[in-house]
Design a protein around this nucleic acid. Structure first.
Lengths: 189, 189
DNA sequence: GCCGAATAGTCAAAAAGGTGATTAGTCACT
DNA sequence: AGTGACTAATCACCTTTTTGACTATTCGGC
């Protein structure tokens, strides 16, 4: 039950519909959790029936009606309880790393292509996160924002996401370069 | 079905028993995947019945007997097939980040304590990975090893693990420092 | 001689997470 | 008039992961 808390944390800042929440989980929230729309709708329903969020119907003329959810007092209490619980250690879980682990036994060209693609993907996320951070801090410097801004939580998690993707990009580029070099050396033998 | 491939990748270098594999998944292999012993035993059984690994009984005098597994030709082919498949994008999934996202609504002291603990944990992993890397490259320089060494796969994934934990440590320390500063500022108001 | 830790492995069930398909209306464009 | 993208959401499975036991044997320390 951790998706539960990720949803609560995501709803702290704004009242969102399931659909908007799904968007958020695709971009910013993905820094700390990932989930598909179906999971979110299911989780929202459970959270509502447990009284941790409350939804209100919003009738729209030009679009399908939607339900906006906000965290209740009970939801905040649940988050507090969660915040005091022990953490499971975090770990990377990544297909691409499994492939690199087997690098000496699988097709090198394919691997280099995938590393290059992942580096580009990481680069795109870096841009995205850079923009999100700029939007959050507005015209303040990062230092000032972190000292005096309200709601620094999302900013801090975004910083972690940014660093993670920078790490991804750098490692992918370096690994691809190393594999390319070895391939060349092998071909020349 | 990615645990499957993580197990195959882990067995490439050495013939291991389920128990040893579980150890490996607790330290080095955890760089790219994580799993509990029960999962590994179950996965090994499935892999064997699918002919992707083969096990041989080793009778031991002083210890309970064990079964050592190695990857078969079919297993290598399966890994190759997997290496050519598309990657799911990787993402962080971390309780602690969820808590930090909610930083402005939960107990700051508790959060600082958890960030500090996590930083220490990351530091320990950094030491561990540093040692693993030294052992793998022996007396060669990293550059030389990566150019000419056999089996650089595990080395590369370990480098990623190292960078990840360094990122964790740095971010945890910085976040804790920021929260401490804000707490002080708040108390002085 | 007992206790706890380490080796080696297994079973069953619950919780969590993921996939695919489908509905239905609007909007913009071609 | 048709195509595809966007908003908004639901249904029905399926797979993976986690939790919590339980069985044996051996080694080291007290």
């Amino acid at each position: 039950m951790a998706l539960r808390h990720a949803v609560l944390a995501a709803l702290l800042d704004e009242e969102l519909s399931g659909y908007q929440l799904a968007k958020a989980f695709d971009t910013g929230v993905a820094n700390f959790w990932h989930a598909l729309p179906q999971q979110l709708y299911a989780e929202l329903a459970k959270l509502e029936s447990d009284g941790l969020v409350s939804g209100r119907e919003v009738v729209q003329d030009t679009r399908p009606n939607k339900r906006l959810f906000q965290v209740t007092e009970a939801g905040l209490a649940e988050l507090d309880r969660f915040a005091a619980s022990v953490n499971k250690p975090s770990f990377i879980r990544d297909d691409l790393l499994v492939k690199v682990q087997a690098a000496d036994h699988v097709d090198t060209d394919e691997l280099i292509a995938q590393l290059t693609e992942r580096a580009a993907f990481a680069e795109a996320k870096i841009e995205l996160f850079g923009g999100l951070l700029r939007r959050m801090r507005g015209d303040r410097s990062e230092e000032k924002f972190l000292r005096h801004g309200a709601r620094i939580g999302p900013y801090l998690t975004c910083l972690r996401g940014l660093a993670f993707e920078q790490g991804n990009r750098d490692w992918c580029r370096r690994s691809a370069a190393i594999l390319r070099e070895r391939r060349t050396a092998h071909a020349q033998r």
